[in-house]
C-alpha cells in the first residue's frame, strides 16, 4: 500500500494507576497503521487491552505515551475546536446495545443529539428527513423514530447505535465488540449491514472483537494483542494460513470449528495456565509463561517488532534470526532489560 495511512498509532501506551504506586499496563507500546477504506481487526482475549486501545485512539482516554495521528494530526494534542471537528470524522459503536442507548430518550432524540451538538441542520424538517434516511440505511424504518429503546430487540438496538454513529457522516468508525452481545443469526445480519455501509459510504473500520472467526470474515488486516502488546499483524488470509507467533497459533487452534469431521482431525495446541497480571507482567516476552517454545532468552529480552514478509509483522524471538543465531544470547545477563 503506497497511500499514506489515515490513522497511525505509534508506540501507544496507556497505563492506569491502581494504587500503592502500581500501574496496570493495559496498552504497552503498540504500533500500526490503518489505510482509507479498509477494515482493521484488533483481536485478543479479555484483558489484552484491545478495548483500551480503541478508546485511547478516539481520545476517550488520555495516552500515557506514544502518538495517535489521524490524517497527520495528533488526536491527543487538539484544541477543543479541532477535537470537535475530529469527532465529526471519527465515531464509535459500542458493545452493549442495552447499555449504550439512553432508555429515556426516543430513537429520534438519540440519533439527533450529535447533529444538534454540531449544529448540522437548520430546520426540524431537514433533521427529520436525515433521521429517516439514517434509519432506512440501517434497515429500520422512519416509523421507529418515535419509539424508545426498550421496544427494540438487541439486533435492532445495535442498528440504532450504528445509525447514531453515522449521524455526523464520519469516515472512520471504531466498532468495539459490536456483535458479541447478539445472537448468532443476528450477528451475521449486523456484520452484513456494516459491510454494506462500508461499500456505500467508503467507511474505514477499526473492528475490535474477541471472536477471531468473525474478525477474519470482516477484516482486511488483523492485529493480535496479548497482555497489552501487539504480537502479530498481517492480512487476515495470511494470519490463518501462516501464523508466525506461537500465541496466534494457539489462539487459532483453540477456536472450535462448526464441522464435526474437521474438528475431530484438528491438532489442538492447549495453552497451559492463564493470562498473567498486567500489573506485574512477565519480563522479556509477555507470552513466555504460557509459550510451548519458551527459551531462556525470552525471559531476558523483549522481542523486536519484525517485518518477516511484506506487511507481516511479528514479535517473537523464534523469528529473529539474530537472536536465534547467537547461541550465547541465552546466557548473557547484561542484555536483560
Amino acid at each position: 500500500m503506497t497511500q499514506p495511512a489515515l490513522l497511525s498509532v505509534i508506540e501507544l501506551k496507556r497505563y492506569f494507576d491502581v494504587g500503592r504506586g502500581d500501574q496496570l499496563k493495559a496498552v504497552d507500546g503498540i504500533s500500526f497503521d490503518i489505510y482509507k477504506g479498509e477494515t482493521f481487526g484488533l483481536v485478543g482475549e479479555s484483558g489484552c487491552g484491545k478495548s483500551t486501545a480503541g478508546r485511547t485512539i478516539l481520545g476517550l482516554y488520555n495516552k500515557t505515551d506514544g502518538e495517535v495521528l489521524y490524517d497527520g494530526q495528533s488526536v491527543h494534542d487538539m484544541t477543543s475546536k479541532e477535537r470537535r471537528h475530529f469527532l465529526k470524522r471519527m465515531q464509535m459503536i459500542f458493545q452493549d446495545p442495552y447499555a449504550s442507548l439512553n432508555p429515556r430518550s426516543t430513537v429520534y432524540e438519540i440519533i439527533t443529539e450529535p447533529m444538534q451538538i454540531h449544529g448540522l441542520y437548520k430546520t426540524k424538517k431537514e433533521m427529520r428527513n436525515r433521521v429517516n434516511e439514517l434509519l432506512e440505511d440501517v434497515g429500520l424504518s422512519g416509523d421507529h423514530a418515535n419509539r424508545y429503546p426498550h421496544e427494540f430487540s438487541g439486533g435492532q438496538r445495535q442498528r440504532i447505535g450504528i445509525a447514531r454513529s453515522l449521524a455526523l457522516d464520519p469516515e472512520f468508525i471504531i466498532a468495539d465488540e459490536p456483535i458479541s452481545a447478539l445472537d448468532v443469526s443476528v450477528q451475521a445480519q449486523v456484520v452484513k449491514l456494516l459491510q454494506r455501509l462500508q461499500r456505500e459510504k467508503g467507511l474505514t473500520y477499526l473492528f475490535i472483537a474477541h471472536d477471531l472467526s468473525m474478525v477474519k470474515y470482516i477484516s482486511d488486516r488483523i492485529g493480535v494483542m496479548y497482555l497489552g502488546h501487539m504480537v502479530e499483524l498481517t492480512t487476515s488470509a495470511q494470519l490463518y494460513e501462516k501464523p508466525l507467533h506461537p500465541y496466534t497459533e494457539a489462539l487459532l487452534s483453540a477456536i472450535p470449528i462448526p464441522d464435526p469431521d474437521i474438528e475431530e482431525l484438528r491438532e489442538r495446541i492447549l495453552l497451559q495456565g492463564e493470562l498473567p497480571s498486567p500489573i506485574n507482567p512477565p519480563s522479556g516476552c509477555v507470552f513466555r509463561t504460557r509459550c510451548p517454545y519458551a527459551m531462556q532468552v525470552c525471559a531476558e529480552l523483549k522481542p523486536k517488532w519484525l517485518e518477516k514478509e511484506s506487511g507481516h509483522f511479528v514479535a517473537c524471538h523464534l523469528h529473529d534470526e539474530k537472536v536465534m543465531a547467537r547461541n550465547d544470547t541465552i546466557v548473557v545477563p547484561e542484555l536483560s532489560q
Binding site: V184, V186, A188, Y217, Y240
Partner: peptide
C-alpha cells in the same frame, strides 16, 4: 443457523444471516 456462523477454516465464504427475529 449453520450458514450464519463464519468459519475460520474457509477462505471465501458468504455469510447468510436469517432475516427477522
Amino acid at each position: 443457523l449453520l450458514n450464519s456462523v463464519p468459519r475460520l477454516d474457509l477462505k471465501e465464504e458468504e455469510l447468510q444471516p436469517i432475516e427477522g427475529t
